[in-house]
Write a protein that binds this DNA or RNA. Sequence first.
DNA 1: CGTTTCATTGAGTGCGATCAAGCCGTGTGG
DNA 2: CCACACGGCTTGATCGCACTCAATGAAACG
Lengths: 216, 216
Amino acid sequence: MTALSLSPSLAAPQQPIDALGHIGVRMTFSPGEEIYAQDEDADMFYRVIRGAVRTTRLLSDGRRQIGDFYYAGDLIGLEAGPVHRFSAEALGCCEIQVIRKSALKLYGDEGVKIERLIWAETARELQRTQEHVMLLGRKSACEKVASFLLDIARRFRGEVAELPMGRQDMADYLGLTIETVSRMVTQLQTEGLVRFLGCRRFEVRNATGLACLVET
Amino acid sequence: MTALSLSPSLAAPQQPIDALGHIGVRMTFSPGEEIYAQDEDADMFYRVIRGAVRTTRLLSDGRRQIGDFYYAGDLIGLEAGPVHRFSAEALGCCEIQVIRKSALKLYGDEGVKIERLIWAETARELQRTQEHVMLLGRKSACEKVASFLLDIARRFRGEVAELPMGRQDMADYLGLTIETVSRMVTQLQTEGLVRFLGCRRFEVRNATGLACLVET
DNA sequence: CGTTTCATTGAGTGCGATCAAGCCGTGTGG
DNA sequence: CCACACGGCTTGATCGCACTCAATGAAACG
């Protein structure tokens, strides 16, 4: 097998990651707990085993931007530079596999396979981030919230979806305020596109109507 | 040399790329000409030899977002998926090295070295995109324009800087309208932070004042 | 020189932010 | 069991930044 595969498949994001097996150690984090900090040395990377994680970045005056949310199976902390540009925090209770980058060297052929996985995952993250740029740069508040809910809902395939994050996190991800997020959620509900059962559980009532708000 | 280097250096973005040497073919593009299209097969990647390039993405209703600008030495088209999610267009006249991904297989050891370069470059692009997210999500119009000008000015190290793109491109990169960009440019000039000589050439007059607008 | 394209400026509007209550689920103690 | 407090969410009123629409100005080009 040659070392070259410049177009890692997006289609199979989950299985190959299992190659990571049980390298490293597992840790559990409580809600809000920090997994790694902004500007900390990036000598580890992490895999979410259970729960959900947010990565956040603070401006010096306190404004906050959430980079992305990560769920079971996702890798986090794959920075290019020597330090983490974002911090990572547990959204709820979660279990995380922590892997020292240098440790991979010990795994020979297996290590090479893992290296390729990581590169594929980095490329996938780049794509997600580019979508995020599109959303932040050119979408209205309503479209932002609709896109976000649709994205979450997809993970639940028609079942009632559960939001692992609160409104403030949604706002900081979407580049909005908490009040605007709340208003748009209410509006989407009034229009019959989604229905909320409590503020963290919802179902999509009109998938096509919602998708229609989310231009591509 | 092991196959593992998970923290490719950000510090030396230029030299190693020379490993690409003269693989592939060189092409020239005229202003505005398309290098590759959105949704086109991503079986090539590209290196800017001379000139500047923008990558753009269109929503179905015509709203446009610019992903990034690329200059001499930069690699473009390093998508993870099978198709390009953005299109790439020449900003002015430019010369581009076009490399078929599959061709790298023919280069054996050299190919492996190049593969690693490409991965480093992808990671660097991820970082730039994350900065872009921060800018779009949490900065004011004034801060956006200031950040942008400072970023460009850095490439000219105190010399008079030349903008390779027009106001519309700046606007579509910053998530603003052309009028707002123009107003902010005027404002920054009025405040004595920058000085424009024509609408595509400028110099920074007060670097600290400008940097102060650009929170990190 | 006229034409075209791009940038600037002005006037007015509207979307999303801000400020301020009010609401509601949850937990705690009497 | 209720009273109360607390944090997170929602709603309302108002403000202001950035957008829109329109006109003008300034380069680039034939």
